[in-house]
Design a protein around this nucleic acid. Structure first.
Length: 204
DNA sequence: AACGAAGTCAACCGCTAATTT
DNA sequence: GAAATTAGCGGTTGACTTCGT
């Protein structure tokens, strides 16, 4: 679908909506040369009639290298469930532990797949049917939504679990706990260690 | 085949945090 | 230190697709 133009005649009209292949190419070429920064300037210089925010999102979610799309594996799903239990709706932190996955994708996956799964499990529990779904519920209790951007609050849940937020946005599980060594791990390596600890640690 | 409902997901919006001037 | 700018985050929207009748 071609992007639609919006805005008043007095202001510069920006494209909105789905990106075209041509726009993708322009943005990719610009970033290849200048790097992924100064998005407003990038949008203007690359000849994109888009706002900087839109360019940033497009790059992060679709154009940057090593993006995985679709087919979230069982292991990844399990990890998302566990991380969500730990972190709540901290999609970027959760995504940081799933190589190639974006916060937007995980958020969408949660809202469309996992939320439903959990709700079903909750309903089954109220009917007192002891099934695997109930076990799933037990491992993925609903957490309170959290407001974005509150740096102090952001850290509370993590620090309560013995960790702190790193500069790069990843959650490092900290010293004085079983999680010390996990902070330096990435992706499935981290996940595997996390899952090993999970069963007999503090998540239940 | 036609239609509406439900599901999916890309993209936008509003906000705060971080950085720069 | 204050103001302006930029980056990043999570919630929400809306277009499109799939499913059920």
């Amino acid at each position: 679908m071609a992007p639609k133009n919006v805005g008043s005649s007095a202001k510069k009209v920006m494209n909105k909506g789905t990106w075209t292949a041509e726009e993708d190419q322009k943005l990719s070429q610009y970033i290849e040369i200048h790097g992924a920064k100064r998005w407003e300037i990038a949008a203007a210089t690359a000849g994109l009639n888009r706002c900087g925010k839109s360019c940033r999102l497009r790059w992060l979610n679709y154009l940057r290298p090593n993006i995985k799309r679709g087919n979230i594996s069982d292991a990844e799903e399990d990890l998302i469930l566990r991380l969500h239990k730990l972190l709540g709706n901290r999609w970027s932190l959760i995504a940081g532990r799933l190589p190639g996955r974006t916060d937007n994708e995980i958020k969408n996956y949660w809202n469309s797949h996992l939320n439903k799964k959990i709700n079903r499990a909750m309903i089954e529990k109220t009917l007192e049917v002891p099934t695997a779904a109930v076990l799933l519920r037990d491992r993925t209790e609903i957490t309170m939504p959290q407001k974005s951007g509150a740096s102090i609050n952001d850290q509370v849940g993590i620090e309560a679990a013995g960790g702190h937020v790193k500069e790069n946005g990843n959650t490092e599980l900290a010293a004085n706990s079983e999680f010390t060594e996990l902070g330096s791990c990435t992706g499935l390596e981290w996940a595997n260690k996390f899952l090993e600890l999970d069963d007999d640690a503090w998540l239940f």
